[in-house]
């Protein structure tokens, strides 16, 4: 993405709106919000050149707390609206946000569609295993047989694997992070924004109100005899998911397979970058077909003086 650094360095405060926040105290969303703002500050993205899209749910409110152009869209449709925006103005940095229900449940079709396109945006999924705003039903990432305190019965359907789904769909940057570690999260989000193409950051997140299974203490492993974290960073175990030669199909397949294998590790759970590859984006393909759009974005094109005479002449 094009990143224009302004004359005066932007501070974290420049990315905060003055809106009162109505998330529950201790919500993992705060960590994600901070992580996003830190990443934006690191990259010095001008708020006027930033478009933040979101779905519906607690996470959907995030753009209201960020200084930038904010688009709080519909449940499950965030990627479609964001794609329309992104393709219309390729000068803007586009962030898409949503919950796990929003992205992997009701929006699963658009999750797949966006992966196939590989348009240039970062998609951050708040993954807390529950539908928070409707008071704690099982989300698509909660495994079969699990039961949070808000659920009357155990989950009868199994959970999906977002990383594997992203691999299969064609995302070119796939990472996972943890909401309560904003600094690390920010570094991952910054990489996702810098990445040219569709980038997924699945953020493991606590819901202190409804999810009593995957709590802060659980992630910290407070219940384990050895008191170790239930998370580990991929790069610390020598894992490198980046495809060095995108023309090497064998390398790409091997890296995808490795990423999928890691994504099934349940304890400890890997965080960090699972997979990364530089491939032509949807925009690249569009620019090839319609060169004018490579010179200036669609929204700046003069399309109001078209001569349709040749089309009409063809109808004689």
């Amino acid at each position: 993405m094009s990143i224009n650094a302004p004359a005066k360095p932007l501070t974290l405060k420049d990315y905060k709106s003055d809106l009162h926040n109505d998330w529950c105290p201790g919500c993992g969303d705060f960590g994600i919000l901070t992580g996003i703002q830190m990443a934006l500050q690191q990259l010095q993205i001008e708020p006027d050149k930033l478009a933040v899209y979101s779905g519906i749910g607690c996470s959907g409110k995030t753009p209201h707390y960020i200084n930038g152009y904010g688009f709080h869209t519909l449940h499950g449709r965030v990627l479609t609206v964001a794609t329309g925006g992104r393709l219309s103005n390729t000068d803007l940095t586009v962030l898409a946000l949503g919950g796990d229900g929003d992205g992997y449940g009701i929006g699963a079709g658009y999750f797949v569609g966006a992966g196939r396109r590989n348009a240039d945006f970062a998609y951050i999924v708040h993954n807390n295993n529950v539908y928070g705003l409707t008071k704690g039903q099982a989300s698509p990432t909660l495994s079969k047989g699990k039961k949070t305190k808000s659920m009357p019965e155990q989950a009868i359907q199994d959970g999906i694997n977002p990383v594997a789904m992203a691999i299969a769909s064609g995302y070119t940057f796939i990472a996972r992070a943890y909401a309560l570690e904003p600094k690390y999260l920010a570094s991952i989000i910054a990489r996702a924004i810098r990445h040219k193409g569709s980038a997924l950051v699945d953020v493991l997140q606590t819901c202190p109100t409804y999810n009593d299974l995957y709590t802060k203490e659980w992630y910290e492993g407070a219940d384990l005899p050895e008191k170790r974290s239930r998370l580990y960073k991929l790069e610390e175990k020598g894992y490198d998911g980046k495809v060095q030669d995108p023309t090497d199909e064998q390398e790409m397949i091997a890296k995808k397979a490795a990423a999928v294998a890691r994504s099934y590790e349940a304890d400890p759970i890997p965080i960090g970058v699972y997979y990364e590859v530089e491939l032509p984006t949807y925009e690249d393909a569009v620019f090839q077909r319609i060169p004018a759009l490579g010179e200036k974005p669609l929204v700046e094109q003069d399309v109001f003086h078209r001569d349709v005479t040749p089309l009409l002449e063809g109808m004689r």
Binding site: T80, A82, G84, L298
Partner: peptide, 27 residues
């Protein structure tokens, strides 16, 4: 004519992508 035509995954995507584009200022 410098027109972008996008074939979408379904009509929900079609309308919402168009909404996203319209909010961005294109017809």
């Amino acid at each position: 004519y410098n027109l972008l035509v996008v074939q979408c995954e379904d009509e929900i995507a079609s309308i919402n992508m168009a909404v996203g584009a319209a909010h961005m200022g294109v017809r």
